[in-house]
Design a protein around this nucleic acid. Structure first.
Length: 596
RNA sequence: GGUCCGGUAGCUCAGCUGGAUAGAGCAUCAGCCUUCUAAGCUGAGGGUCAUUGGUUCGAAUCCAAUCCGGAUCACCA
């Protein structure tokens, strides 16, 4: 049980004993005491005054005395300032906590709870390579899936690949017309970039054709509709839907190039999936559901044959679920897939990591699912994240300001190499060890940078800041870990009798206690990150823990502690910190080096 | 126009289920390496928490209005 829980329970019990009144933990707040006051944790008494009809001084005194008397193993002192009851917690309490947990690599994690959750993240189109926005999505989804696991859930990581549609046909048409049979192999260009280049070529050619048509006197709308390359693309989509062999073959070939490229990137950044869905398999799903919905009068048919749902009673609008020509729209397949996920895996929760531009769409999806009475409708959760912008504004593919995922990853690794070489600390590393280290640090910086911000907020990507390895960064935390491991290695060889030290009680120094208190909070943070769908809580926490350790480290020597007993405590403290850093960074997808 | 999200230090962000004098990092300035890794530590300056009103013992936090920025409201996905 956490210290805060203890204080809440003890306070409730004491108040009942003292005043014969019942309170819950919601009736008063327990905070960490501000550094300028004496004490470790504080009970805020203002909210109790009315119910008890007593002054804060009286309540504080009686409550403080009662707590010390009833729980001497926890509370050693108190003081009252205005309505704040500041409690001092016994050093033994902290030391026991330290000894109990310092070597537990599962500290903070929960037992399996029997619940199954699917987390869908990274839903790429197969006509363009991944970019910075995808990275935020992928890191977020992956990390949140790991946070769920640490909180006792069974997790299925999934991905839906948007591998069909008009946008895919665009790159296919462009390849047919402009490639002269070129392939990623023949050009040496990574498959997803290769295909993406033809998508760009399509748009260039399309723009030219539109301009020419306008020059002949057509309006812009006419020109956009009539441009031959666009017509060819639309024809290709029809051919695809009819399964025309040469179109299918080209489609398969070009997608396979893209997948090869994606696989490389996913592997490079440490993303993985348990189940991959393809839109080409799922786009027809949902039509049966539409039919059933029509019978149940959830949907209705307009005169032209199109099928709709009216969501006006829920504050939304009418929404089409099937076109007049009988084909399905985006939302239709999503309804189908939502049901399929449930039926295939019997999941208790279905989480979608998707950008906030689709907030409306996801709201509609959930609402329709509910109205259809789908079993999992209540448990659909949209983990909505904000866009990544540049210091110069939004990323726009048309203006070529999109930051490519592979490029930025390479850049981070190169930068970490330069920093590391400049510091000259790891000259005895082998080539392979160096490569590993550069990647660990570069990826650590990148992931931490994208994960440290509250997911739902739009964030600004500042290139100079992202490659900074000082302060609130991944490498700062990694460095803290490496320093601890360095100390522990030396002590291991120097002093094997360390574990035999007996402990008397000589009290904890301020920074020692601060560090234990910070470590004690990890399980709460881990749980909070889960319930709030927010990995940034972990990033913020682990930075704070690392900072606390670094202050402690510079102030007090571990190896040359004042006494053997102090040394013993500090070694445990260092191990505790290192274990928490390692396991929490793992939840962010960030590795920590033994040396750097 | 409707709906949703946001506005906190020069910049990037915490804090938002109301609590003590609003915090970090970067940048700027001043210190600290013969002592466990200086990718570190210590300190200084820097704020009308968008504005106005309300709720109360107490508001960056809750409510209302206003201003500014963004997203979305397709027989696109």
């Amino acid at each position: 049980m956490s210290i805060i829980n203890n204080i809440q329970n003890n306070t409730i019990d004491s108040l009942r004993a003292l005043y014969n009144k019942s309170f819950t933990e919601k009736d008063f707040q327990v905070n960490q005491t501000k550094p300028e006051f004496e004490g470790d944790y504080t009970v805020v008494m203002f909210s109790l005054l009315k119910a008890l009809q007593l002054s804060p001084d009286v309540i504080g005194k009686q409550l403080g005395e009662h707590l010390i008397k009833s729980y001497p193993e926890i509370y050693t002192g108190y003081n009252i300032i205005k309505g704040f009851l500041n409690l001092s917690v016994a050093d033994d309490y902290w030391i026991n906590l330290l000894y109990k947990n310092y070597n537990d690599i599962c500290y903070g994690k929960k037992e399996m709870n029997g619940k199954k959750v699917m987390v869908e993240y990274s839903s790429p189109n197969t006509n363009k390579p991944l970019h910075l926005g995808h990275l935020r999505n992928i890191f977020l989804g992956w990390s949140y899936a790991e946070i769920l696991k640490a909180n006792g859930y069974q997790v299925i990581k999934s991905c839906i690949v948007n591998d069909r549609g008009i946008h895919i046909c665009k790159s296919m048409i462009a390849w047919q017309r402009f490639a002269n049979g070129a392939t990623p192999q023949s050009t040496g260009i990574k498959g997803d970039h290769f295909v993406g280049d033809y998508y760009v070529k399509f748009n260039d050619a399309y723009k030219d054709e539109v301009a020419q048509l306008i020059a002949t006197g057509k309006t812009k709308e006419q020109a956009e509709k009539e441009a031959p390359i666009m017509k060819a693309t639309q024809q290709m989509l029809l051919d695809w839907e009819n399964g025309k062999p040469e179109v299918m073959e080209l489609w398969k070939k070009m997608n396979s190039w893209v997948y090869e490229g994606f696989d490389f990137t996913y592997k490079n950044i440490g993303a993985d999936f348990d189940k991959v869905y393809y839109e080409s398999d799922t786009y027809l799903l949902g039509k049966d559901i539409v039919k059933q919905g029509l019978e149940k009068n959830v949907f209705y048919k307009k005169d032209d044959g199109s099928i709709w749902i009216n969501l006006q009673a829920d504050g939304l609008d009418e929404k089409i679920v099937q076109r007049s020509d009988g084909t399905s729209v985006y939302i239709t397949q999503d309804i189908g897939l939502a049901l399929q996920k449930y039926e295939q895996y019997k999941i208790d929760q279905s989480i979608y990591v998707i950008g906030n531009e689709q907030n409306y769409h996801m709201k509609v999806l959930q609402l329709i699912s509910k109205k259809l009475g789908m079993p999992n409708a209540e448990n659909i959760y949209h983990l909505s994240y904000g866009m990544v912008e540049l210091t110069t504004g939004k990323m726009k593919s048309r203006e070529g300001t999109v930051v490519d995922a592979d490029d930025i990853v390479d850049e981070m690794i190169t930068t970490s190499k330069q920093h590391t070489e400049a510091l000259g600390k790891v000259q005895d590393f082998t080539k392979e060890e160096l490569q590993d280290l550069y990647k660990t640090i570069g990826m650590g910086a990148m992931k931490f940078y994208l994960l440290r911000v509250d997911p739902k907020k739009t964030m600004v990507f500042n290139p100079a800041e992202s490659i900074d390895f000082h302060g609130f960064t991944g490498p700062f935390v990694q460095y803290t870990y490496a320093r601890i491991k360095s100390i522990l290695r030396k002590l291991e060889t120097a002093d094997t009798a360390l574990n035999q030290q007996q402990l008397t009680n000589s009290g904890l120094l301020k920074l020692e206690k601060e560090l234990i208190i910070a470590a004690e909070q990890y399980p709460i943070v881990l749980e909070q990150a889960c319930t709030e769908h927010n990995p940034s809580l972990i990033a913020n926490y682990i930075f704070n823990l690392s900072k606390t350790f670094n202050s402690f480290y510079s102030e007090h020597s571990i190896a040359k502690a004042e006494t053997e007993e102090k040394k013993y405590v500090r070694v445990k403290l260092a191990m505790f910190t290192a274990n928490i850093i390692k396991s929490s960074m793992q939840l962010l997808g960030i590795a920590v080096p033994e040396r750097m």
